[in-house]
């Protein structure tokens, strides 16, 4: 039995005791998987597992708080669950975690660039080396490196870090280039004025749909997001890059020491603004200051939720 079949069997066994199990099913076209809430044993047959299962399903967990649910997890998704556990936003005893070793998911934006028009792709197939798209112009072959999400190329956590069921052999960490680091290095090399101009240009595309926020597993304020509140009134409704960038900065600050770098914010962005760079920068700062990465240990206290008189890497007295 393949690991995936084993997992389905485990889900069927667990389902009677659970409100639902969150996984993926085939979406509206061959390229899209979609989140799927399995409630009955027959639903399990519709569960899919492929490089198109891009969504981090842990985003849904806080809304099921207090209910018993199962969830299918990639390695990166499991960090979201762990961070939620750390922040006591979900209870471990109410969760059944089904992990699968993941060798990377597709970046549909990248595939779209190769295929021309994603809407007209009639079939997709994949193998170790890459993806094959059936388009009206004929078959298009995209190499793995050009098709996978950036985060997957250098993924350090291909296996769920916390799981009740983890069928199949664990995968080794990926050894590809860290494109995120390269992007950050390029940004950091820019002069402040140029950087500001670049962000202003990027943010001018923003339509303030807040998809980045809604996809973020760590955004738990939901209806009470400070971006849309009049009291306190942090952001005006003015349609300017300044207000839009301000929201991104607020989101980044709110994620300090919490962001698990799943990249859902950027993936969800309908206008492809490279906003993950801001979170990555903050994560790097947190890593340097506190030797800490979010979502690795459910027992750890995130650095900004605690207080040390003397931080190891912050030499306050030497300032």
């Amino acid at each position: 039995m393949s690991p995936f079949e084993t997992l389905k069997e485990k889900i069927r066994e667990a389902l009677p005791g659970l409100d639902c199990v969150i996984g993926w099913r085939q979406g509206f076209d061959p390229l899209h998987a979609t989140p799927f809430f399995m409630r009955a044993p027959e639903d399990v047959e519709k569960l899919v597992w492929s490089p198109l299962c891009v969504h981090n399903l842990s985003t849904y967990l806080p809304s099921f708080r207090g209910k018993k649910v199962g969830i299918v997890l990639k390695g990166c998704d499991s960090r979201g669950v762990i961070e939620l556990l750390q922040e006591k936003l979900v209870e471990r005893e109410n969760l059944v975690l089904f992990g699968l070793p993941c060798s990377g998911v597709a970046d549909l934006t990248k595939l779209g660039r190769a295929a021309g028009d994603l809407d007209r792709v009639s079939a997709v197939a994949w193998d170790e080396a890459g993806f094959t798209l059936a388009t009206p112009r004929g078959e298009v072959r995209v190499a793995r490196r050009d098709a996978l999400a950036d985060k997957c190329l250098s993924c350090q956590f291909p296996n769920a870090l916390e799981a009740d069921h983890l069928p199949g052999d664990p995968l080794p960490p990926a050894t590809g280039p860290d494109l995120g680091d390269e992007e950050l290095a390029a940004l950091e090399a820019m002069a402040p004025a140029d950087l500001m101009a670049r962000w202003a240009a990027e943010m001018s595309r923003c339509i303030r749909c807040y998809a980045c926020r809604n996809a973020c597993p760590m955004c738990v304020c939901r209806d009470h997001c400070i971006a849309q509140s009049r009291d306190p009134h942090w952001l005006s409704q003015e349609d300017s890059p300044r207000e839009k960038l301000m929201f991104q900065l607020i989101h980044t600050m709110h994620l300090a020491g919490r962001c698990v770098e799943c990249g859902e914010c950027q993936r969800a962005c309908p206008v492809d603004i490279p906003i993950l760079a801001l979170r990555r920068k903050m994560n790097r700062v947190v890593r340097e200051l506190f030797d800490y990465q979010a979502g690795l240990d459910s027992q750890a206290v995130p650095p900004l939720f605690t207080f040390q008189v003397e931080e190891a890497n912050i030499k306050e007295r030497k300032w």
Partner: peptide, 13 residues
């Protein structure tokens, strides 16, 4: 309390 989502971060810090 209408805005509070009960995440408890205030109590922690």
């Amino acid at each position: 309390q209408r805005r509070c989502v009960g995440c408890g971060k205030c109590a922690l810090t």
